[in-house]
Write a protein that binds this DNA or RNA. Structure first.
Lengths: 249, 249
DNA sequence: AATTTGCCTTGATACAGATCAAAGAATCAT
DNA sequence: ATGATTCTTTGATCTGTATCAAGGCAAATT
């Protein structure tokens, strides 16, 4: 899910890989050549079109995977159709849980997605034999858990305006290129409806809050899916989070 | 957090331990004698009175621990005092994250709590050298992640009535003694205010929903902190969850 | 036993965000 | 290009839950 990154998280050195360098960053930062060769030998690629469901809830998990390209969402749906997104997968994020046969949510591609997949039994064997991969996966799970808990605070206690501000700030942090990342044009990736499902709101409320933040000069839209942050300080003020770096995305 | 347990989760055999058997179930199901001895040698006990803060957010983590007795909560607080509980720790649950210096939430004892603590650096050394402990900790983290995601659906999309019904059903499942666990007297452990912080509600709404469920004959209170489930089918109906066992607590 | 204190319940009212509705953009298909 | 479809915006209204307020009960203290 990767919403939250500690500032002092250990830096993972990128590792050369002809086809999908990103994968090794996600799965393993310290594999030796033999292990990398093993990973190579059990990997396959899969691609999904925007809107495709990658995995249905309850479906047996045949593979674990790393996102190479695109954006996928994790979501839960109630009987009557209410849905809640419970995670966002960006490149380098990991799908699947060694030791688990099933997942408890749907995974859907919001744009075209490429996955680097590893056969689950073989991957699990590798995990069993390679302690630092198990450790790395635990760290990934703990990162996701931190992110999930930040999101619980958002869902349970934040106002619509704070939710939207938090969401935008997260996107700004993630997509900032330079050190001084404001004024970059940021891609929204999702529809208003999907954002609403992420934030526990309706699409109309999302739209209204975007309009309000634009009117107040905090952000500016170049088109429906692209915007710039005009006043990053004001934006941070609106998130409701502590001013100090308690929550760092 | 341990809210959700998969029915098909691998059964962890209890391991004999003179002082805190529960700990070994939490940390490790397959340790050999040498490893257990190592664990023994780095453990200490700490106790906390009801209401004590066990760990403040941001505080450096000196130990990791396993809950031996009592109930503790994980919570996040906003500048203006709004708080959201993001986890519940019951006996056998684990506190702390190997590889992490800090935690991002407060840990508070709601009743008297006994922890079995392990010095963090020493524990991490053990994790590094013992692959199956890392695996076990990853499984614990994944269980918590599943629970956190169920809670996200609750916080983002459920009505007050559904939230309360879900909460009660969770308690009922956890504290049921016999196979046919209904009609047991269930202990609420927490105040209305704490429940409200868990469910993203106010204490008045919690109180009103309890009263409503009692009036409708779904539950019955013997006193403020103790109740019985009078109609388990109706209760499950009210949670909004799928009738089939999608979510199993 | 009386008093304090900390929860808890219930009522009245307010309001944020949901819902219902309709008209504008943008994208897609023909 | 043209029409169809899908997404977005904006307005009007409704409603579930928060907020404000007052009193009740039970455990703890004197």
């Amino acid at each position: 899910m990767n919403l939250s990154k500690k500032v002092n998280a250990p830096m993972i050195a990128p590792i050369k890989c002809s086809q999908c360098p990103i994968r090794h960053r996600a799965v393993c930062a310290r594999c030796d050549d033999d292990e990398l060769t093993l990973l190579e030998s059990i990997k396959t690629y899969r691609t999904y079109a925007a809107g495709d469901v990658i995995l249905w809830r309850g479906e047996p998990l045949e593979f674990v995977a790393s996102v190479v390209q695109g954006v996928a969402t994790l979501s839960k749906t109630m009987e009557d159709g209410r849905t809640q997104m419970v995670g966002l997968l960006l490149p380098s994020d990991f799908i699947g849980r060694p030791g688990r046969e099933n997942i408890e949510f749907d995974v859907t591609a919001t744009v075209d997605v490429t996955l680097c997949c590893f056969d689950r039994p073989k991957f699990e064997k590798l995990v069993n034999e390679t302690p630092h991969i198990a450790q790395r996966l635990m760290e990934l799970a703990l990162d996701e858990l931190d992110a999930a808990r930040d999101w619980m605070l958002l869902l349970g206690r934040k106002t619509a305006r704070e939710k939207i501000a938090t969401f935008i700030e997260m996107l700004a942090r993630r997509s900032s290129h330079g050190q001084d990342g404001n004024k970059d044009i940021i891609d929204l990736h999702m529809t208003r409806d999907q954002i609403a499902n992420y934030l526990g709101l309706t699409l109309e409320t999302v739209s209204r809050q975007f309009s309000a933040l634009k009117k107040d000069g905090v952000i500016d839209f170049s088109d429906r899916k692209h915007f710039t942050v005009e006043d990053i300080a004001a934006l941070q003020e609106e998130t409701g989070d502590d001013a100090d770096g308690g929550v760092v995305y």
